[in-house]
Amino acid sequence: MLKHLIFFVTFLVCEVALTAPLKVGLVLDKGGKDDKSFNSAAYAGATKAEKELKIELKYVEASDVTALENLHRAFARKKFDLIIGIGFAQTEAIKKISAQHPDVKFALVDGEVAAPNVRSLLFEEHEGSFIVGALAALKSKTGKVGFIGGMDIPLIRRFSLGYEAGAKFINPKISVVNNFIGVTGEAWNNPAKAKELALAQISSGVDIIFVAAGASGSGAFDAIEEKNKLGIGVDSNQNWMKPGVILTSMMKRVDVAVYNTIQDTQNSKFTPGVVRYGFKDKGVDYALDKHNEKILTPELIAKLEDIKTQILSGKIKVPDYYKQSKK
């Protein structure tokens, strides 16, 4: 009896408190909110919105593949206003649940779902990767740079292709070593393997490594620090993780995309369809802050800004893996 009573009272309290603000559900990918990279960026954007926009935020992390759909459905059934899925793995789940709950709005990062209540948030990762690739080539002394990707999927291939093109743009003779951690979702969460790959690359003469591997990245940075080389972070600004070791970070502003979507929804300006984030709106960029200002000299910055304008003006065509593979 007592149990029922307590339950009832708590339920009542929750119910009353939650009526007013916008309810946002955030479904994170397997890496989790503490991957200091992709999911962390999403989480940062959402918490920023929670503070500034006074929304009600609830986030969950997926535990297994079958759970994703259930998490979305659970949010939808609780009448959340906006549900944001982070990562391409949630495409199928959102496709299914958004059709069943047309009154709920959905946003999907890194995946495309064509539905009247879904906004797809895509990034021009290849452009950002191009510019850090160019930076790597400018900084490399050995003429050999490396790339470590998380899961071997088209999305990450897109990073690596852009990176390679950027490096070759500066130095056509440069050699680029590509490695991927794995083929399953575990690849986002395997720092040990990342470290192993980084050490192998370094021993083959690589002196700068771009690490696009979610929570696995920290392992690679450990190896890079150990061997006195330089690394490039991804998604979030990861410069702070190892000041002086991380040359810069290829920022994919998932936080901005998440924040903007929440803001739009709150202001009743939610629009379905694809929203692309590129250099234009600083959706992708390289990071510059107090942690790397010593290594990133003004000359280098000038060079990078020049390349950026060339990309924006269409003078440089950055190869896109998505378009290549479709041919």
């Binding site: 391409f88 793995a89 495409t91 199928e92 999927i153 999305l155 399953t184 979702g185």
Partner: peptide, 17 residues
């Protein structure tokens, strides 16, 4: 299973493994 699913009969419409 990983090899078979990803290289022999992957889902052409998805990036999921």
């Amino acid at each position: 299973a990983s090899w078979f699913v990803l290289h022999v009969m992957p889902n052409p419409n998805s990036q999921n493994p």
